[in-house]
Design a protein around this nucleic acid. Structure first.
Length: 423
RNA sequence: AGGAGCGUAGCUCAAAGGCAGAGCACUGGGUUGUGGUCCCAGUUGUUGCGGGUUCGAUUCCCGUCGCUCCUCCCA
């Protein structure tokens, strides 16, 4: 084979589409219940939107961006996530002047240049929500509840929620100082990566997966001990609302998330049924991002979920409501004359809203019935020269094998009657 | 970027130096116009690609391309 999809990019095949539709349907129906409207931002932005928005020192920006120069010499980047774009759009279209609280959802492809593995590809798809304009802790709780609601509606029961607060930037400066002070003497026990992070992004050392780093961090200071009273109150309130909503969670003081824009609340939803890439949803508050982009200080909170991972789980559940849907009617014809009439009949059925097919492979009657069977036809119409000369058609119930002959002009209504009574 | 495993028929997989196979699928027949079960017959191959060793390579060696999983990080 000469041509392959580029590494990490793949085709979503018809057999998988029902699962994608199920996810998309759920997102589109659930989001509006919580007051979120869809926004569609471009699939690429000027590179600085992400570089600034997501943070230069993050993994996403420093090594995972699909960046290229366009013909005008501008540096462009395929979006690795959607929050930065949403904030850019919020400011560009001056939504702060149009509505007090912007609640948006989105759905679409994202790109990160990484080694693909189970549940991770270079082009992947996310759904997510952003609420820009409120610092109400109830909104944080709503976000988390919304993410959980979506997964639950899709039939996923076995998911865990972890929660943390990383405070405001001032808290973090204080905490990071303490953390670095604590880690410096232990430098030798940290992995190479983390030794570098000591200077660039010490917070990330907390969720390093290396055992030695974890041991070091274990006895270190926790960020929640350094929250200012406002952040502490906010965190307490979020937890209170979560309790009110009956949402269970685990506190994880080491949950810091990979993107720089987060403040206060951060959370992740994961599934132990997935492989190494077990995060289903990630999100949090980003009160400083609008300001960073040049707007007035504006609090905001959001989350994003990965569709590929969701589809993997849904496929394991073998949901029958997500199987490919079959044919309603197959029409078998036996020669050129009957095929001409057959085409008209099939067209009539389609116009009546039925899924109808006819032979395009020159199959024998036996072959056609086999085809009808495999594609799930409930009824097969058999139109041979005998029927045609009498202006009739044979109706075969594919489940029982019962057959009846009906006048051609009553075919459509007979089919409809039959389908209605069998459903 | 690093580590491990795997590339054989449309699909799932055998063959472990000696004629490239099975099941499923597909086509035809048993049934001159009747599917899902059954029986019979048939079609299907650049063994990923290139080189090497050998009388002989799908098998062993080297390289290469691709896929998968893992480390890292995330959705």
């Amino acid at each position: 084979m000469k041509y392959y999809a580029p590494k990490g990019l793949y085709d979503i095949k018809p057999e998988d589409i029902p699962y994608w539709h199920a996810v998309e349907r759920e997102v589109r129906s659930t989001m509006p219940l919580y007051g979120y409207e869809e926004i569609r931002t471009p699939i690429m932005e000027k590179t600085e939107v992400f570089a600034r928005g997501v943070g230069e020192d993050t993994d996403v920006v420093s090594k995972e961006m699909y960046t290229f120069e366009d013909k005008g010499g501008r540096s462009m980047t395929l979006r690795p996530e959607n929050t930065a774009s949403a904030v850019r759009a919020y400011l560009e279209h001056k939504f702060y002047g149009k509505e007090e609280l912007s609640k948006w959802y989105y759905l679409g492809p994202m790109f990160r240049y990484e080694a693909p593995q189970k549940g991770r590809s270079r082009q992947f798809h996310q759904y997510g929500a952003e609420a820009i304009g409120s610092d109400d802790p109830a909104l944080d709780a709503e976000m988390i509840g919304l993410a959980a609601d979506l997964l639950k509606s899709l039939g996923l029961e076995d998911v865990g929620l972890t929660l943390n607060s990383i405070g405001c930037p001032e808290d973090r400066v204080k905490y990071v100082d303490k953390l670095v002070e604590y880690l410096k003497p232990e430098k030798d026990r940290l992995c190479d990566n983390c030794r570098a992070r000591l200077d660039t992004n010490p917070l990330r050392i907390l969720d390093c997966k290396e055992d030695s780093c974890q041991e070091v961090v274990e006895d270190g200071p926790e960020i929640t001990e350094y929250l200012c009273s406002e952040c502490q109150d906010h965190f307490d309130d979020v937890r209170g609302y979560l309790k009110q909503l009956d949402l269970e969670y685990d506190l994880d003081p080491k949950l810091v998330r990979g993107l720089d824009y987060y403040t206060k609340t951060v959370f992740e939803v994961f599934s132990s049924d997935l492989g190494a890439q077990d995060a289903l949803v990630g999100g949090g508050r980003y009160d400083g991002l609008v300001e960073l982009f040049g707007g007035d200080p504006t609090p905001a909170v959001g989350f994003a979920g990965g569709i590929e991972r969701l589809v993997l789980l849904l496929e394991e559940l073998e949901r029958t409501d997500m199987e490919r849907s079959g044919l309603d009617v197959y029409l078998a014809t036996l020669d050129e004359e009957t095929k001409k009439t057959g085409l008209e009949l099939v067209q009539e059925l389609r116009e009546a809203g039925l899924k109808a097919e006819i032979d395009y492979l020159d199959k024998s009657l036996q072959g056609q019935l086999g085809y009808a069977d495999r594609y799930g036809a409930e009824i097969t119409g058999i139109l041979g020269p005998r029927e045609l000369s009498d202006n009739e058609i044979t109706l075969r119930d594919m489940e029982t094998g019962d057959q009846a002959t009906v006048p051609l002009n009553e075919f459509r209504s007979e089919v409809k009657n039959h389908l209605d009574s069998s459903r």
